[in-house]
Amino acid sequence: MTTDLPARMLRLLSLLQTRREWSGTELAARLDVTGRTIRRDIDRLRDLGYPVEGTTGHAGGYRLASGTAMPPLILDDGEAIATAVALSTAAGHLTGMEETSLRALAKLEQILPARLRTQVAAVQQTTATIGWETCGPRADPELLGSLATACRDHESVTFDYTTRHGTRRVDPHHLVASGGLWYLLAHDTGKDDWRIFRLDRITDPAPTRHHFAPRPVPGDDPAAYVADKIATAPARYRAIATVHASADTVRRRTWALATRVRPRDETTCTVDCSSNHLPGIAQTLAALDADYTLDADPEVTAYLHQAAARMQHSVTS
């Protein structure tokens, strides 16, 4: 039973922030108290200015509504790391929000526990970005934090990789965000060569407590190295666009494909949009925002025609 009132109030507030609605019975079970205690605690939250609404229906319930002011948030470890990384990224890439992002980041870092502050700092120190995409790169925050710490501390790690059998042992050097994904640039001890690994394919990472001497990355630019590897990787579907816009203009619009843009003259360039995913090719072509001619596999052109037909149907229906 949660008998400490401040701790119970914080726990109750945290629960209300994780779901749209809770029944009184569920809250009482989670906190191991009676329904009467829950009702009293809800009244206490309301007295403190939290807009907790009662809901109708079988047994009734509670939900935290939007109010006139931003209430304090309670974040778990993974949420805190993700928020700090997002604020740090926004401070460097969102025009007009640099100062407000840094102020929010400073407030968050001031109250982070030491163990989380260390992980956030590691992510910031070991991360490179290939351009910027509004959707943001995807990664499990705890995995991101642990690999960033290993990169910073030069500690070898082992993990399973979904596209390969067996456990990999690597010396991690840098984390790179590109095309909505996170990549780990590491020296594979088994292959004795540089490799890049997608974080969404890494499972069961574990530190080894073995520290290594960092190696110089080929070209001394982690982001450029990863971008080149991504650009030259074999793709299932071929699609080459000749675009009526300068190479510099297209690079600004398609940061993740910067290395695949080749100028032809001052007003024309070619863009290699090849990919393993047809929707990704369509999104890249849409981002060009310019007239183009396309040399592509039949599967690509068929998919684009189907997508255009669906859009036309949705507009006219």
Rank of each mutant, 00 (worst) to 15 (best):
M1V: 09
M1P: 02
M1S: 11
L12T: 02
L12Y: 05
L13C: 00
R20Q: 10
A29V: 00
L31Q: 03
D41A: 10
R46D: 07
T55N: 15
G57H: 13
G57F: 14
A59M: 00
Y62R: 02
L64R: 01
P72A: 02
D77K: 00
I81R: 07
T83K: 12
T100L: 03
S101Y: 09
Q110D: 14
R115N: 13
L116Y: 06
G131L: 08
P137T: 09
R138L: 11
F159C: 06
F159D: 06
Y161W: 13
A177S: 11
S178K: 04
G179S: 14
H187T: 00
D188K: 08
W194N: 08
W194T: 07
I196M: 12
T203P: 05
D204F: 07
A206H: 12
F212I: 05
D228H: 13
K229V: 06
I230C: 09
A231V: 06
P234C: 09
R238L: 02
A247V: 05
T249M: 02
V250D: 09
T267C: 06
T268L: 08
S275D: 13
L278A: 14
L285Q: 01
A286N: 10
A290K: 14
A290E: 12
D295K: 10
D295H: 15
V300Q: 03
R310P: 04
